[in-house]
Every structure is written in structure tokens, then in C-alpha cells.
Amino acid sequence: MNEHLGDNELQQYTVEPRELSQAALTHIAICEHCRVKAQQYAQITAGLKHLPKMTAELDLPILVLPIKRESFSLSGLAVGALIFAGLLVIAAGIAAMGPDFRALLSVGQGLRFYLLLAAALILLTAGSASYYNEYKRQLKKMGLLS
């Protein structure tokens, strides 16, 4: 091989020497011109591996990850159970009061008043939990919550 090697072969010598033919390898060994060029490519290849690194200069975990809260979350089953408990309390109240159920509407009726209050609180909790779950579901749908 008397002609000089092309740039592609010389680059291959530095990047993937095993891909080069024996004739090309021999030529590089004996030809000063090609050896100089190959060494220059080798310097470039080595230099490219160690270019200065770049960073985002952003706090990506803060910007990307959703804020993790210890959130109150109730499953559908729990919401259902709460609603059922609320209805049960009302039913118990009606059974206990009988025809005097209307009297429940007036404040200060002892046990009857507290039964009404408990039912209202249970239903309010169940409603809020159900609303909160729906709100979370919508956020997830919009991709704002994982």
C-alpha cells in the first residue's frame, strides 16, 4: 500500500482499530505522514471524551417532583361505610324518637340532639372525602399529580 490512507481510515484507527485491515495498520506503522495524522485524530478523540460537563443550573428535583404531603385520603369503600353509618344513625334516631321526630329540629333535646349532630358530622366527612378524592382524580387526569 503506497498511497496515504484517507481520513476515515485514520479516524477508524483511533476509534475502532479492530475494524481496520492489516494492510492499513501496516501502512500506518511505516508511513510518517499517516502516523502523524492518526496521532492528531487520537488526540482529538481523547480530548472529546473529557470536554467540560454542563449542568442545568436548576433544582430539578424541586421543580419536577410533586410535593409529597401526608394527605388524608379515603378509599371509595371507606366513604361508602361512612355514608352508611350516617344513615344508620338517622334511622336509629327516628326509631328512638318515633312520632316525636320533629322535635329533633329543636336544639337542646339531649341524646336526640347529639344523634342528629353525629349523623350530620358523619355525612359531612363522607361528602368531603368523596369531593377530595374526585379533585385528586381530576388533577391526575390533567397530569398535575402522579
Partner: peptide, 25 residues
């Protein structure tokens, strides 16, 4: 990361940051 561990995500960023930032730049 899927478990919400911030340090895991930071490790992921460290591994891939140069690639992503350079490609964008």
C-alpha cells in the same frame, strides 16, 4: 423515584444531566 424519593431523582439527574443539557444547548 416512583416512590417519591427526592434523592433518587437527584441521582437520576446527575446521571443524565450532561447529556440532556448539552443536547438542548
Amino acid at each position: 423515584i416512583l416512590n417519591g424519593e427526592r434523592h433518587a431523582f437527584a441521582a437520576f439527574v446527575r446521571l443524565t444531566e450532561n447529556l440532556v443539557v448539552k443536547m438542548v444547548f
